[in-house]
């Protein structure tokens, strides 16, 4: 494999691009390995965020630096991918985790905490018991 267009890249840019590429790809690999390795779904849901935060960030920065230096003009459209992935990934994972806990509660899986109905908590609070007032104060 050869990249003749990379030959006229200055050394500092090459080092920077290489460092960002290796950091980004390595973090993505660590995230995916954790996703494969961790035990429960609620542990696993955290692992791929490594790839979507600095994994994507590193590779996007590498691409931006590479094309900016190579084409002698600012090339920043890759930042769109970075912004988009950073914004959408929390939404995705929140939706998925809520769906998972909903399914676990629906089959009364003992591994997840049961949901206290809000009405029961309110009634307990209105009777003025100690736990009720504690809940009312939001502690």
């Amino acid at each position: 494999m050869s990249m003749p267009h990379a030959a006229n890249l200055p050394l500092w840019a090459a080092i920077l691009v290489a460092a960002f590429l290796v950091i980004g790809a390595g973090l993505t690999l660590i995230g995916s390995f954790g996703f494969w390795r961790l035990r429960s779904f609620y542990d696993r849901v955290h692992a791929p965020t490594l790839g979507t935060s600095w994994g994507t960030g590193g590779i996007v920065f590498a691409s931006m630096i590479y094309f900016t230096v190579l084409e002698l003009r600012p090339v920043v459209h890759e930042i769109l991918i970075g912004i988009f992935v950073t914004v959408t990934m929390p939404v995705t994972l929140m939706l998925l985790a809520r769906a998972a806990i909903y399914r676990d509660r629906a089959e009364q899986n003992p591994d997840v905490p049961v949901m206290e109905p809000a009405r029961a908590r309110l009634e307990e609070a209105s009777t003025g018991s100690e736990t009720g007032s504690r809940l009312q104060n939001g502690i």
């Binding site: 494999m1 050869s2 990249m3 003749p4 990379a6 030959a7 890249l9 200055p10 050394l11 840019a13 090459a14 080092i15 691009v17 290489a18 460092a19 590429l21 290796v22 790809a25 590498a62 590479y66």
Partner: peptide, 11 residues
């Protein structure tokens, strides 16, 4: 610099 980038791309 080509060698460095090629190596990083492979990795």
């Amino acid at each position: 610099s080509e060698m460095i980038v090629v190596f990083a791309v492979w990795v």
